[in-house]
Design a protein around this nucleic acid. Sequence first.
DNA 1: AAATAAATCCCGGAAAACAGGGGTTTTGTC
DNA 2: GACAAAACCCCTGTTTTCCGGGATTTATTT
Lengths: 207, 207
Amino acid sequence: MIKVAVVEDHPIMVEGLKNILRSDAGIQVCGDYGDGKSVLQALEKSQPDVILMDVNLPDTSGVNLCGEVKKKYEDIKVIALSIHDEQPVIHSMLQNGASGYVLKNALGNEIIRAIYAIMDGEEYLCSSTKEALKNADMELLKAIPRITRREKEILQLIGKGLTTMQIADQLFISTHTVESHRKNLMEKFGVNNTTSVVKLASEYKLL
Amino acid sequence: MIKVAVVEDHPIMVEGLKNILRSDAGIQVCGDYGDGKSVLQALEKSQPDVILMDVNLPDTSGVNLCGEVKKKYEDIKVIALSIHDEQPVIHSMLQNGASGYVLKNALGNEIIRAIYAIMDGEEYLCSSTKEALKNADMELLKAIPRITRREKEILQLIGKGLTTMQIADQLFISTHTVESHRKNLMEKFGVNNTTSVVKLASEYKLL
DNA sequence: AAATAAATCCCGGAAAACAGGGGTTTTGTC
DNA sequence: GACAAAACCCCTGTTTTCCGGGATTTATTT
């Protein structure tokens, strides 16, 4: 019996997943969690074999959560569930130890297939994910930049349309500091203007 | 018996919805459709009382689809289902004739409540939606701006990080023209810098 | 305790965007 | 065909961002 935990913040989705998984005799859903914190708590008591993990969670990103889970419990397999087929997101999840990546527009049995595949030690990507990765060589694929708390804060204010000066005023720091952060953000994202940073950040759900 | 049709492109979500709706004796799910085209076809043969409609569909937006459905079949009630609680999206759906707006992170019974409420002629907004609308008076609420082909083209190039001059070169128009479009975009979005335009456009799925 | 990363601050010149006016020519719709 | 809307073009001055260097102080992490 494969024990599966579901991490997903949309109750309707959870309902659908549980329904699908119940239909398979070899799988047992041992719990569902709506955010990262609750699943980390639950893992301290008992561990499932597989975690089906939504990439977009209210309190943390699936990318981070996946990394944390794999750091502490390396034997737990993680399958990422996502509505996004953006390469950097997929790439980051896999780099953080996910064994599978299934898009939410997948059919129910694709998830069951994924669970069995990764329990056999394989890596499972759904067809659309494979498609999305195909025309990009893994080497050049850039992961989602790791940005600091402060950078994120500034990024959000930039996204709101504030100018450097307004941000400086609001955070009680100098405009020079804001400009430094802006510069660092552009560098981390590999672009040369703030607009692109905001666009990418918004694609990567960093805003 | 209330006949409900489900328009939603994520099979797992469909599964969850049907499961929830089945649990209520007064509701009958009379069909599910993965895109706008198939539901419009199906409506020609028979009409449900209520359509649960995802706002993000592969072939069209829920906003457009809702408008089309209501134009042809004004008696069908539409409940929008969405992961977004952005005011303009909500507002646009309601303006296009939706009778309800429920976020996907809602509980299952909230959807059943919504169905009964709108069958009683009420308008139903889930709590988070109400929250999102609260601190904005409906009058000032701006809908998603209607942008022209050309503006969209320019918006995308801006999003790619090109400067006004690069865009002008690429489209064989003068920088002045590009600046005019940029200006118009800012005005339509009600913001005063391009970064915000890009952020909003990306939120509204216009990029 | 040492090393790394984060956050802060600083400068000046160049490049770009913004603001706020003006006007003409297509294109589409009633 | 009339009318409106879109797309196009032009100008000047101001503000803001970008780029290229710096440096210092505080966390973290090892």
